[in-house]
Nucleic acid binder design. Structure first.
Lengths: 221, 221
DNA sequence: TTGTCGGCCGATCGCCGACAA
DNA sequence: TTGTCGGCGATCGGCCGACAA
């Protein structure tokens, strides 16, 4: 099971993109994930990290990961840098952190919490997540948008037109742009993503059971 | 530029497969590559290896590769194991070797060359390699087989039929099976791979300029 | 409300010889 | 000898509402 995601933005100024990616990253990571602030002290467990790397990589890489029998089981470190990433292949989100072990003397020093402690992992409210059905991923048709989701998250349609439709432009975690035709049609009426959807499905290699997450950042005037 | 390859075999006994993979591996590696026999002594250059790994992998893996400033620039080792591999994504061939550093005393010991020294890197003779043209990789048609190659490497056709055709079954480096329709038709007559070829092209993500290598192992009665 | 389907039409795939490099 | 092309039938993609869960 995998998760793909897109964020819409209104092509305003620069600097929005970083904001979008951060919000999108947190939306994908979920509310249980919060990142420690730069400058804070964290505990690093070498053995656990080594086992995790060994388990998640193949044997060949194992050969390059030596044992350090002399290492203590845990190290008090200072966090120097945090960057948010997403796997190029799977869009799985992860964070990369630079840690520096503190000497025993440094550990005794007064620990001043960094002022910016707790840039909170604010979850976006204008988002929706759907598990893809067989029809959603089939080549036979498009993506069926749950009604409440479309009304809350997507830009409003002009319902005076027949059928109401618009082009949506979204960006994924890698800042790639995707275009979707959003239409409100059928009997009974429903929201659909048609043109552009199948390109997204095949590019992300989505199958039934995977999930997609959409967020919407801008306010409309 | 990439290289994909296939070997045909006649579904005889077991144990053939390993032979096929070894021959196919050497055919892909080329005549300049020969593997040292198990038990022989080899020289390992840690610095060169480290630089090579750093250059061929991304930055994140770099973080897991520490420096060993105290290591000597070269280590005399004994070769314990050699296995042949091919990259799952690209079919690039490589070998994995297990080395054990020898103590100074062991290095002084008499070095008995292993008896099996020089299992030679025998290059198969029944093979051909072709650089793919735009027509070969286009979805418009199949694969044009050079005439001499088809006559030397492929199983013989029954030319009394019109048109002469047969189904070829081949295995790649990962032992996956591929089926191709081999037909001799057109004016002037030529050998073509039609049905099944486009599946192979898209699965291996071949483009014009890549190469394919076919070998044929069995004798026919 | 929304998942799946039949209908339908246009785009692409893929097999064929013609032709020329 | 073989790379590319026009031709053409068959298949697939993808948009539509019908229908039912």
């Amino acid at each position: 099971m995998r998760l793909s995601s897109s964020g819409f933005n209104q092509q305003t100024q620069e600097g929005e993109k970083k904001c979008l990616n951060s919000e999108l990253w947190h939306a994908c990571a979920g509310p249980l994930v919060s990142l420690p602030p730069v400058g804070s002290r964290v505990v690093y467990f070498p053995q656990g990290h080594s086992e995790q790397v060994a388990a998640s990589t193949n044997k060949e890489v194992d050969a390059h990961i030596p044992n350090y029998p002399s290492l203590p089981p845990q190290l008090i470190c200072q966090l120097h840098n945090v960057t948010m990433h997403a796997d190029v292949e799977t869009d799985e989100v992860y964070a990369q952190m630079t840690l520096q072990p503190l000497s025993p003397q440094e550990q005794k020093d007064v620990y001043l919490l960094p002022a910016e402690l707790g840039t909170p992992s604010k979850q976006p409210t204008n988002y929706f997540c759907k598990t893809l059905t067989a029809s959603d991923t089939s080549t036979h048709g498009g993506f069926s948008v749950p009604r409440r989701a479309a009304e809350k998250v997507f830009p409003p349609l002009d319902y005076s037109q027949t059928p109401p439709a618009q082009e949506l432009i979204a960006r994924d975690l890698h800042d790639n742009e995707w275009k979707f035709r959003h239409i409100f049609r059928g009997q009974p009426k429903r929201h659909l993503l048609t043109t552009g959807w199948s390109v997204f499905v095949s590019a992300k290699r989505l199958v039934a059971g995977d999930s997609v997450l959409f967020i919407w950042l801008e306010n409309f005037l």
